[in-house]
Simulated scan of single mutants.
Amino acid sequence: MTTSMQSEIRTGANDLQYNGMLELKKKCGVCLKTESKYTCPRCNLSYCSLLCYNSTKHAGCSESFYKDCFLQEMKSKEAVSTSEKLRILEMIKNLDEDCVDEAEFDDSLHSRLEGINLDDHDSVWEKLTADEQAEFLDGVKNGTLVDEWKPWWTSHEKNLVVELDESSVEGKCATSSAIPQRKLNVPKLTELLKSKEPSPLVSNNLVEVLYTYAYHCRKYNGATTDLPSESGFNLISGSTFLLNGLTRPSLEEALEITMSACSNHNRDTAVPHETIEVLLDVYHILLGPDKGNVTLYTKVSLAECHSYCTALKRCRELPSTVNRTLVKNALRKLEFLYAWADHAFLEFPVLALRVFGIYKSKISLFSEHEMHKMSRSHQGHPPVKRDLITEL
């Protein structure tokens, strides 16, 4: 046998030995994916990480291990009195019972909802017990079911906001959510228009888009980023400027139409008090955080809208009322408004006050309407009797 053949045989034997060693390496007994690195000293289970060690598959062993360690530590502490040990053991027992009850509850609810279409609200409701239904309704009534979202645009420097009658912004500013870190890289307005001057009605389009954005942020409790493509569709559907390219001749008309469009798109039967309050959100956005950066909130809002429409554009299938060309045009319009905000920053304080004036007018009319309804109610004011048949 030649030297070269002996070398090849040794190489092949080494390869077989190495491959055999690889096969002997066990995978994690919990996730069954990653190579195991450790072995449980109690049950000899091979695992890859602390996450797998503490998983539900290994919970019985790991919890028992921690409990034994704790009890052993208690025995070694002479300073701990017998009554204190009994109290702690009672707490552990109660905790174990609570965990069992919670697990049984989760298993029961999971089994009841198994095979049920979770989008079918009626079917899900029927599977809930009477206590669960009562707990849900109580949470809706008290507002404890979902934490109330505090808009990030309500945070301003001191003395920047016009003092309101009942809608004080103090307190809101301290608890408002974080400002989204979004911006757009767009050319300057002079580069987009070249030698042309922007229309004086651009501000009407901007306010319309901001209202639609704030309306849906309020409606979905700030969770618009969870479904960006749906938010993009809602945004375009609520703004006639983004949908049809229409520019309204007055700020009042632009707001009136977009308020109606948002209500119709979301199947709201009437314009409630909360819909009028969205005008106050637009006012806050136009103010910005301080006098030196009045356009920041507007540009962040437009960048958010741009991200929603971009997500809508990437969808394989679009709703029947929009198409890809329409979405592309909406993106260009948002980019134009973003460039205009940088160019016309001096107009923002006046524009904010105009929106605030419209808000005050509408909220005053709404209050008068409510007072009129109360005055015509039957409480203390019986209805005037009228003859059903009048002699002619």
Score class of each variant (00 low, 15 high):
Thr2Pro: 15
Thr11Phe: 06
Asp15Ala: 09
Asp15Trp: 14
Met21Phe: 08
Thr56Val: 04
Ser62Tyr: 10
Tyr66Thr: 08
Tyr66Asp: 12
Tyr66Ile: 07
Ser81Thr: 14
Ser83Met: 13
Glu97Cys: 04
Asp101Ser: 15
Glu104His: 05
Asp107Thr: 14
Leu109Ser: 06
Glu114Pro: 07
Leu118His: 09
Asp120Thr: 01
Glu126Arg: 10
Val146Glu: 09
Glu163Phe: 01
Glu166Cys: 10
Glu170Asn: 11
Lys183Trp: 08
Leu184Gly: 10
Val186Asp: 03
Lys194Asp: 11
Lys196Glu: 15
Ser199Asn: 02
Asn204Glu: 08
Leu206Ser: 00
Val207Pro: 00
Glu208Val: 08
Thr224Pro: 01
Leu227Ala: 09
Leu242Gln: 06
Gly245Glu: 07
Leu255Asn: 00
Ser260Pro: 00
Cys262Leu: 07
Asn266Cys: 08
Asn266Asp: 08
Ile276Phe: 11
Thr298Asp: 00
Lys299Pro: 03
Val300Gln: 06
Cys305Met: 07
Cys309Trp: 05
Ala311Pro: 07
Arg314Lys: 13
Thr321Ser: 12
Leu326Ile: 08
Leu326Gln: 10
Val327Ala: 10
Arg332Phe: 09
Ala344Asn: 09
Phe356Asp: 03
Gly357Lys: 14
Ser361Lys: 14
Leu365Cys: 04
His369Phe: 12
Arg376Ile: 11
Arg376Ala: 10
Gln379Phe: 14
Pro382Trp: 02
Asp387Trp: 06
Glu391Cys: 12
